[in-house]
Design a protein around this nucleic acid. Structure first.
Ligand SMILES: [Mn+2]
Ligand SMILES: [Mn+2]
Ligand SMILES: [Mn+2]
Ligand SMILES: [Mn+2]
Lengths: 222, 222
DNA sequence: ACACTGATTTAGTGTATCCTAAATAAGGTT
DNA sequence: AACCTTATTTAGGATACACTAAATCAGTGT
């Protein structure tokens, strides 16, 4: 009886997953914004998803949505495909790291298990995508995500960039140009209060950046 | 205002293209069978396609459908993507030639121009897909297709296999195992009337095969 | 208790595709 | 000319998603 979730459903699942990762449920409005869909439409979709024979979503009126175990599994499957695809597009097809998301977001709904396995093998079973987001393994076990933002770092702490969380392509290109990519090591030099500007050295370069930028960079202290 | 054709539309266009390649129009029933959709649904879809603001399909009641110039262009774009994908899946991802069709038929609707260009370049701008079907070039110019069937060959003619036309995966595997693939050279030895069995040598092997098989193999005499 | 605000849901629609059952048209047959 | 048979269209529905406008709810401050 198990029908494959539709493209739309899979995108909802991914969104609910990331928005409810902190424990509480994903709100209608947040989902609407994330998915670029009117809030009213989201309500309708959540109701439909929650009342399916084998519900993927747990929805309580005005409380938002969370994933059922089956929904979480389905979400992780899509996220795995998405991140593997991003990595593949980047490593094997020469897509820039600001270009991979859209392509992956379309392809993730149509590739077969065989395709997924092939690129996974070709890539050597990667653990992170180009943005540093962890890739769930075959058993859908999701590695821990870095959760400390560069904006929270204070001199004289040192850290390694683990992941970058940005949809904005301009921002992604900007960060890449400044070597603010996963793996780069940095040393903080100064912090200015009120504007939150952080002075730090990366790759031999010293730069001063505000929280509008540093907020999107997640690091591992070292 | 040009909206991208939907997945369904693209599949209709492909089907109409191949069914009307001989000059006359694609009938409702043939389309229904090809697309695995009820005839009544096909009628509805054709009516919709034909009455769009910029119609891709020319439809006359009870006469079947043909493509408008815009429709033909759109069809060729999809066919190009399909065949490039098949070739890519086969050459770079190790898919067998009986596995590539389904995957390509899903992916063809979602890949970007950039993706198409990348795999085209990586493959060295191939002219034929794994089944020997010609790949339209960037200007959507479709090379001539081989149109003589092996079943029409008579001893002592010699020929080279150009393309194989089969949906059946079993048949495809069978043909591959017998080296009946594009590029193979063969020499006819005998023909038996009534059952149409053809005796010929391929790859050092002599075999006798009936028209149920040889009908699907297209050759170039030499 | 009561009004204000922002979040969310309801109501009412629209589009794209598909389906089944019931006409109907076209062509050849008797 | 009336009759089959087969191809095709019409009628009537269903499902999945999305939208706008109009409620309604919840939390806050008064
Ligand atoms: Mn997606
Ligand atoms: Mn990513
Ligand atoms: Mn297709
Ligand atoms: Mn092919």
């Amino acid at each position: 009886m198990k029908t494959t979730p539709s493209h739309a459903t899979e995108d909802y699942l991914k969104a609910i997953y990331t928005l409810s990762i902190d424990g509480d449920s994903a709100s209608t409005n947040d989902l609407a914004e994330r998915l670029n869909i009117a809030p009213a439409s989201v309500t309708g979709m959540l109701q439909r998803l929650a009342s399916a024979s084998l519900p993927l979503v747990d929805y309580r009126k005005r409380q938002g949505a969370t994933l059922t175990p089956a929904g979480k599994k389905a979400a992780l499957r899509v996220i795995r495909r998405h991140r593997l695809l991003e990595t593949y597009l980047h490593e094997f097809l020469g897509f820039a790291w600001d270009e991979v998301h859209e392509e992956a977001c379309r392809m993730e709904h149509v590739i077969s298990d065989a395709f997924e396995e092939r690129i996974d093998a070709l890539l050597g079973h990667p653990t992170y995508d180009p943005h540093g987001d962890p890739i769930p393994d075959l058993n859908l076990l999701m590695p821990q995500e870095a959760s400390t933002r560069l904006s929270a770092l204070r001199p004289p702490q040192k850290a390694t960039i683990e992941r970058v969380d940005a949809d904005d392509k301009e921002l992604l290109r900007y960060l890449e140009e400044k070597s603010l990519v996963p793996g780069s090591k940095l040393e903080t030099r100064a912090y200015s209060p009120f504007d939150g500007n952080l002075t730090f050295k990366v790759n031999g370069q010293v730069m001063i950046l505000g929280p509008a930028v540093t907020r999107h960079i997640y690091i591992q202290e070292n």
